[in-house]
Write a protein that binds this DNA or RNA. Structure first.
Lengths: 137, 137
DNA sequence: TGCATACTCTATTAAACTAATAGGGTAATA
DNA sequence: TATTACCCTATTAGTTTAATAGAGTATGCA
């Protein structure tokens, strides 16, 4: 299940991507437009800034702005920063691998290969989708 | 992220599917073999019984057994009973639909169509996988 | 310089969910 | 009739999520 953090983060990113000019947008503006708790959004935008998606400007006329072109921001990157692993189980995660406590041997686990299949099909979609694609509706 | 409930449930089902004969298997047997907390497994098997996957027999020589052939049990059914929705957001769920609080119009939501795409690709896999497929490793 | 603006950061909290545990109850069988 | 093994309810510890509060800091402009 997608967390609200991720959902709000994606909505904020698309909001910024839709801006005509590249001037900074205030948190409050996004918060109101997208119906997102201001303080919660604040922390989300902060992590997006710390992870190189957004730049920020303080003071009057300040706000957040995209650092890259929407077409150059892949969904895989966004998902991994906001949501974490894309895989349904840590033992098939590419970037957040963790061994299962209960499995003595992953290769004998019935779920393992199925979860790899699901991971790959989801990855395929996220790799082929950019922020620019999300703005086309 | 797949819950342990679902993971344990699938493991228990495959364990039962692997049995040569169809005689009942005790909870304790599955619990030990698969490293699952006995009491937790108990409640999982109970929901699987209530949802028509398993039959049970009380008293000496009792236990749980599959009601259908492994090849006739689809992953979609198992997932929906144990894990709930397959979709990442309730607003694109086929069986557990819920409207989003923050979206005034789903069709204008940037995430909506992407999540439908992910749901469909995952569904495709789960629909084409049965319990029998999980036992082949 | 001084003030308003708007991001920065830490801490806290309520609610929900997950995973596990405890313990008594009941049906079936030998 | 005693034993076995499922049945059911309640409770709890731990974790995560979502939101809130409030003080701090950098910036730009008059």
């Amino acid at each position: 299940m997608l967390s609200k953090k991720t959902k709000y983060g994606i909505k904020a990113l698309t909001f910024l991507a839709k801006q005509e000019n590249k001037s900074p947008v205030q948190i409050a503006t996004i918060s109101k437009s997208e119906n997102i708790s201001l303080k919660f959004l604040e922390s989300i935008l902060l992590t997006l800034r710390k992870n190189g998606f957004l730049g920020s400007k303080k003071g009057k006329g300040g706000g957040y702005y995209l650092l890259k072109e929407p077409k150059d921001i892949k969904m895989t990157e966004i998902m991994r920063v906001l949501e974490g692993p894309i895989a349904m189980v840590p033992c098939v995660s590419l970037n957040f691998y963790e061994k299962c406590d209960d499995c003595p041997d992953e290769n004998l686990c019935a779920i393992h290969s199925l979860m790899i299949e699901v991971r790959d099909s989801t990855l395929k979609i996220f790799r082929n989708t950019t922020l620019a694609d999300l703005c086309k509706c």
